[in-house]
Amino acid sequence: MENITEWLKENLVTIYNENPYIKLLDISIGHVEEGKVELHMPVLAGKHTNLYNIAHGGALASLGDSAMGIACATTGKKVVTLEMNMNFIKGAVAQSAIKAIGKVIHNGKTTMVAESEIIDSQNQILAKTRGTFFVIGMFEDNQD
């Protein structure tokens, strides 16, 4: 597998750092390599939590979906989610720092499959996701 270009890496970071929904959830991009990404999200009481004061399932689903989608994008392909499933394993308490590691497991011509693992600061698994993504185009370096 070829390494991700600096142009694509910078472009993806810019796109996601400016995305209003990503900003709303306070998601940030950590490590990026081709086929793999690490995202971070705090769990803030009253913002990311449900009535039990643990991370809302929708916030975790958004984090997992974003990690998988960005992992797919690191291959240079623009994708949209076709299908996603998620297993919630352990609650993420308020104020914990969590991260999602997204990985491409199938890089097809028209569809891709990815998975993510959401973990807390003690490396305990909080949730796992798997999704199928439809390729709608390619990212192109317009810097030539």
Rank of each mutant, 00 (worst) to 15 (best):
I4N: 01
I4Q: 01
I4S: 03
I4C: 05
I4L: 09
E6N: 04
E6Y: 07
W7V: 14
W7D: 12
L8V: 07
K9R: 08
K9E: 15
K9M: 15
E10V: 07
E10M: 07
N11F: 13
N11Q: 06
N11G: 08
N11D: 12
L12Q: 01
T14C: 14
T14V: 14
I15V: 08
Y16K: 00
N17I: 11
E18T: 05
N19G: 11
P20R: 01
Y21G: 05
Y21F: 15
I22L: 12
L25W: 02
D26G: 05
I27K: 00
I27S: 00
S28V: 13
I29M: 13
G30Q: 05
H31M: 13
V32W: 01
E33N: 03
E34A: 11
E34F: 15
K36V: 12
K36C: 10
E38F: 06
E38S: 04
E38K: 00
L39Y: 06
L39D: 01
L39C: 05
H40N: 06
M41Y: 02
M41L: 08
P42Q: 04
V43I: 06
A45E: 15
A45D: 15
G46V: 09
G46C: 11
H48F: 13
T49I: 09
N50V: 10
L51G: 05
L51T: 03
Y52S: 07
Y52L: 08
A55R: 00
H56A: 10
G57L: 08
A61I: 09
A61Q: 02
A61C: 14
L63H: 01
S66L: 13
A67Y: 05
A67K: 00
G69C: 12
C72P: 04
C72L: 13
C72I: 09
A73Q: 03
A73R: 01
T75D: 13
G76E: 14
K77D: 11
V79D: 03
V79F: 08
L82A: 11
L82W: 11
E83G: 06
N85D: 15
N87K: 04
N87I: 13
N87Y: 13
G91Q: 03
G91T: 03
A92H: 02
A92L: 11
V93N: 03
S96Q: 09
S96M: 13
S96P: 07
A97S: 08
K99T: 13
K99N: 07
A100F: 09
A100M: 13
I101K: 02
G102S: 08
G102V: 07
K103T: 14
V104K: 00
V104Y: 07
I105A: 11
I105N: 05
H106Y: 13
N107Q: 12
G108A: 07
K109D: 14
T110M: 06
T111N: 04
A114S: 11
A114L: 08
E115G: 02
S116Y: 04
S116M: 12
E117S: 03
E117W: 04
E117V: 04
E117Y: 02
I118Q: 01
I118P: 01
I119R: 00
I119K: 02
D120Y: 02
N123E: 12
Q124N: 07
T132I: 11
F133M: 04
V135Q: 03
G137M: 11
M138T: 06
M138V: 12
E140S: 06
E140A: 08
D141M: 10
D141F: 07
N142F: 15
N142A: 12
Q143T: 10
Q143R: 03
D144G: 02
D144M: 05
